[in-house]
Computed example of a mutant assay.
Amino acid sequence: MNFNINKPNNELTEQLQHKIDFKTKPIGSLGILEQLAVKIGCIQNTLTPELKQPTIMVFAADHGIALDGVSPYPQEVTWQMVANFINGGAAINVFGRQNGIDIRIIDAGVNFDFDKSSGVINAKVDYGTKSYLNESAMTAKQFETAIKRGADLCDKMHREGSNIIGFGEMGIGNTSSGAILLHVLAGVDLKECVGRGTGWDDEGLKKKYEILKKAVDNYKGHNTVENILTHFGGFEIVMIVGAMMKAAELKMVIMVDGFIISSALLAASKMNANVLEYCIFTHKSNETGHKHMLKHLNAEPILDLGMRLGEGTGAAVAYPIIESAVNFLNQMASFEDAGVSNSDQITEA
């Protein structure tokens, strides 16, 4: 799929900054909130931006590499956690309810059949990927299908009224894909990319690294983004790439979560760098490679809470801060409105 992603209209930057500077506060005193207000105003091409129907789409899929021992948890945990999402018992459900965010659960490729009445959106490409230790995780056709399904789902959310979207993921073994994507696409040493995932001890971490190093050494394909994603990606990661590209094309605000979501964004940015113009980085994950991911993307996250859960939880927790940026821009009085003397008037006096 080709995505027509144009940069936001930054011609309003000066007007937005002027509006912010004349609020009843010292210049720059709202810090990152001011930067967010300018960014969102430019994305929406207005001096009065608004956030409509915030949505987080949680994509779940299984990874063949998990069967080779890269995670201390069995593959069955993927579908069991999806069941937890359905029942409203996961962290993403809690934070979504708290902050008025619509949570959508998508089966991108879980090795399980969910009941049609469960509320899970069925976008299944296959029952998990193959292990990329010795073969490609997916076929070229499956890659194209995943990109398109992710894009179509994002388009559906937009047509239903959402203009700000975040992404979450669930898939035992998916930090391994994220680590390899960071290594190959950003040139970071593999040892710096591989983290504890769902909770490895030092010995387990060493084993995970050795498996992933062997997988990378065995790869003989071309180093295009599409080929790398096809060989090492997961169905949920590829769907998120498609969804992000579509969100940027539709000029939606994109809330970027932690390590896995950033690995999808890294891949998307290599396909079209303009996607980054629509992104707000919600938090710094405690997963080892995320600091390298953020540095490569030249990103400044809003929060650093030591989180590394995934599911889109960083985006859900950060959303009220993003909302605060829009609210102060629209609702806070200016010096003129409030009849308060500002520093310019004091200087003139």
Results as ranks from 00 to 15, higher is better:
Asn87Leu: 03
Thr347Leu: 14
Lys124Gln: 14
Thr129Leu: 09
His222Lys: 14
Ile103Val: 14
Arg308Tyr: 12
Gly204Trp: 08
His222Asn: 15
Ala186Glu: 12
Glu336Asn: 07
Ile302Glu: 01
Lys213Val: 06
Gly242Val: 01
Ile27Thr: 13
Ala146Lys: 10
Val184Pro: 01
Ile56Cys: 00
Leu265Asp: 07
Ala151Asn: 10
Ile261Lys: 03
Ser262Asp: 02
Asp344Lys: 14
Asn298Ser: 12
Ile228His: 10
Val340Cys: 10
Lys124Asn: 14
Ile260Thr: 11
Met307His: 09
Gly171Glu: 12
Ile86Arg: 05
Asn327Trp: 04
Met57Ala: 10
Glu14His: 11
Gly242Phe: 10
Ala349Leu: 03
Pro49Ile: 00
Leu329Thr: 05
Gln17Glu: 09
Leu294Glu: 02
Thr175Met: 03
Val326Met: 02
Cys154Glu: 13
Lys148Asn: 12
His292Gln: 11
Asp152Pro: 00
Tyr278Pro: 03
Asn6Trp: 00
Leu265Trp: 07
Ile165Ser: 07
Gly314Ala: 02
Gly173Phe: 05
Glu348Pro: 02
Ser262Phe: 04
Ala273Gln: 11
Lys251His: 04
Asn223Ile: 04
Asn218Gln: 13
Tyr209Leu: 15
Ile165Cys: 05
Asn87Ala: 11
Leu303Pro: 02
Leu305Arg: 01
Asp337His: 13
Ile27Leu: 14
Val216Met: 01
Gly314Ser: 05
Thr46Cys: 01
Ser117Glu: 15
Gly64Ala: 11
Asp107Trp: 10
Asp113Leu: 13
Lys214Asp: 12
Ala83Gln: 15
Ile121His: 05
Val120Trp: 06
Glu160Trp: 08
His231Phe: 10
Gly28Leu: 07
Ala61His: 07
Met170Trp: 08
Leu33Cys: 07
Lys130Asn: 14
Gly150Lys: 08
Lys141Asp: 12
Gln142Ser: 09
His183Val: 06
Val194Ser: 10
Thr78Asn: 15
Pro72Cys: 15
Ile165Thr: 10
Gln80His: 14
Gly161Asp: 05
Asn122Trp: 06
Ala137Asp: 04
Val256Asp: 03
Thr224Ile: 04
Ile40Trp: 00
Gly233Pro: 07
Val216Glu: 04
Met252Ile: 03
Ala268Asn: 09
Asp344Tyr: 12
Met239Lys: 01
Met244Asp: 07
Gly128Ser: 08
Lys130Thr: 12
Ser118Ala: 11
Asp126Leu: 04
Arg308Ala: 09
Lys116Gly: 11
Leu250Val: 01
Ala123Tyr: 09
Ala299Cys: 03
Thr230Leu: 06
Ile237Ser: 07
Ile240Ser: 04
Lys291Pro: 00
Cys42Val: 03
Thr198Leu: 09
Leu266Tyr: 03
Lys25Tyr: 08
Asp62Pro: 01
Gly168Trp: 05
His222Ala: 13
His290Asp: 02
